[in-house]
Structure formats: C-alpha cells, structure tokens
C-alpha cells in the first residue's frame, strides 16, 4: 500500500516534469509560429509591457516575449548537448571502471576525484574567459567538466551488477566483455544514466545561465542567461524593468524543475529495492 502510494507520488511528479519539458520543447520547436515578432527586429527601446509588446522591448528595441521564446532554443540546446557530453563520458568511464576494475578503475576514479576537487564554476569561468565567448565553447566546457559525478554513480551501480548471478551466468556461458556490458550492465544501469542525464541537463542550463550572467556567454545566441545579462548591464535592474529580467529567470527555474522532477524515477527506487 505504502509502495503504491510512493509510486503514485513519484509518477505524478514525473508526469508534471514531463509535461513541463514537453511544453518547453514545443515552445522551442514552434518558436517561429508562437513568437509575435521577429526577435531581431528593432523598434523603440525600453518600452514597458503594452498591447503590441506583452513584455515590452529591450535595450535595442527587440520584443522581449519573442526573444524569450527564441531563447528557449539556445538554452535547451546548450543544456541537452552539454548534458549529453557529460553523461556519455561519465557513463562510459564509470562503466569501464566498474566492470574492469584494477588499473582502469584506479585511473578513472582518481582522475574523477581530482576533477571533483576543483571548484567547478570558478574553473568554468576561467575556461570560458580564456576561450572566446561562444555557445559551443560553453557546451564543451560544461560537458567536459560535469562527467565526474555520473562516472561515480555509474561505477557504483556497475560494481553491484557485475557480481549479480545473471552476469556470472552470462560469463559462464561464454559471453564476452562487450556483450555483457551492452546487454546486461548497460541495460540495467539505464535508469541511473537517465536520471543523471536529466540532472546534468538541468545543471548545464544553470551553469550556462551563470556564465552568461557574468558576461562570459555568447551574446550572438541569446539564451535566457544572456537576456538576464543584458538586462543587468544595460539598465534593466537599475530601472526596475522586471518584465525584462524576471521572465527569463522564471523560465530557467521552471525548466530546471522539469528536469529534476523527471529524474525522480519510481522504477529506479523499485530496482534498488529488488537489488
């Protein structure tokens, strides 16, 4: 009874998360149809919300609502790609370390520990400042520095799995390492990887927003973080233009919440109990 209640609670949260993400994906995909104006078109700058511009216009006269809609594309792309890179690296290394153990495990885990010891955001700030401000550099910087926690979690999971009877059985039947990794270990680790991917995307989006806010983002690909950056450097905050800086902030919160909710996987807790 308690388990069923837990499941429902979890799945409800997951559904909410899924709903939020589908909504954001739809906004990003259909941006040209939804946006009331061309986001690059310039009219009178610094207009407060009005009939024509529901969220007013920014410092160079662009419609803020349209910019907000188009910015979802950049923010989600950066989040997805950075999350994907970090999870691909983290899952691959974690799996190899957990499965093969020995020197591979020591090297991967030691490298991961070193990277984990380095304060993430300051290092990303340095790298982003050193590299030129570009959306792809941010994807790379975040992706290449965010893999360690995925590697650790996947490593722990694989350590459990490799000692399970069905893995031993597969090995006894002559299954090769790659066969076992792809058909047994990876399949049974996918919940962990999905969850880490969702969290990595959320973290990447937050990191991108932080870097952009600090002026280290790509001003030519406007993301929600970049919108806040320009609001904060061209009079938005000083003139209390909440319609400029608040909506992108809320979008970041809602999107990150969606990813976090979707990571709350009921199957994962069930599997954990079974194991």
């Amino acid at each position: 009874m308690e388990m069923a209640r837990d499941f429902l609670a979890h799945s409800r949260l997951q559904l909410i998360g899924l709903f939020i993400l589908i909504l954001f994906l739809a906004v990003a995909i259909f941006a040209p149809l939804i946006a009331p104006h061309d986001p690059e078109e310039s009219k009178t700058p610094y207009q407060p919300p009005n009939q024509e511009h529901r969220l007013g216009t920014n410092d160079i006269g662009q419609d803020i609502l349209s910019e907000l809609i188009y910015a979802s594309r950049v923010s989600l792309t950066i989040g997805f790609l950075a999350g994907l890179i970090s999870v691909l690296i983290g899952a691959t290394l974690g799996m190899l370390a957990g499965y093969y153990r020995g020197i591979v495990e020591e090297m991967v885990m030691a490298t991961g520990d070193v990277v984990l010891l380095i304060p993430g955001l300051p290092l990303m700030i340095i790298l982003a400042a050193y590299l030129s401000p570009s959306m792809w550099n941010i994807v790379l910087v975040v992706g290449l520095l965010w893999w360690c926690s995925t590697a650790r979690v996947v490593h722990s999971r694989v350590l459990q799995l490799r000692e399970m009877p069905f893995v031993e059985a597969a090995r006894a039947l002559g299954g090769g390492d790659l066969y076992i990794i792809f058909h047994h270990i990876l399949i049974n680790s996918k919940e962990v990887i999905y969850a880490k991917f969702a969290l990595a995307v959320a973290s990447a989006m937050l990191t991108e927003a932080s870097l952009s806010f600090l002026g280290l983002g790509d001003p030519l690909n406007i993301s929600w973080g970049e919108m806040i950056h320009f609001a904060f450097s061209r009079g938005g905050f000083a003139n209390d233009m909440w319609w400029w800086y608040l909506p992108p902030g809320l979008m970041i919160c809602a999107c990150v919440l969606g990813f976090v909710l979707i990571a709350m996987d009921p199957e994962r807790s069930q599997k954990a109990q079974e194991l």
Binding site: L214, G215, F232, S233, R234, G235, G236, F237, A238
Partner: peptide, 12 residues
C-alpha cells in the same frame, strides 16, 4: 564594479 547596473544601483 563588474557591471554598470550594479555600479548605478550602488550610486542610487
């Protein structure tokens, strides 16, 4: 200050 708005808010 790192940012003009932060500077102007401090001035205000």
């Amino acid at each position: 200050f790192k940012n003009p708005d932060a500077l102007m808010l401090a001035f205000q």
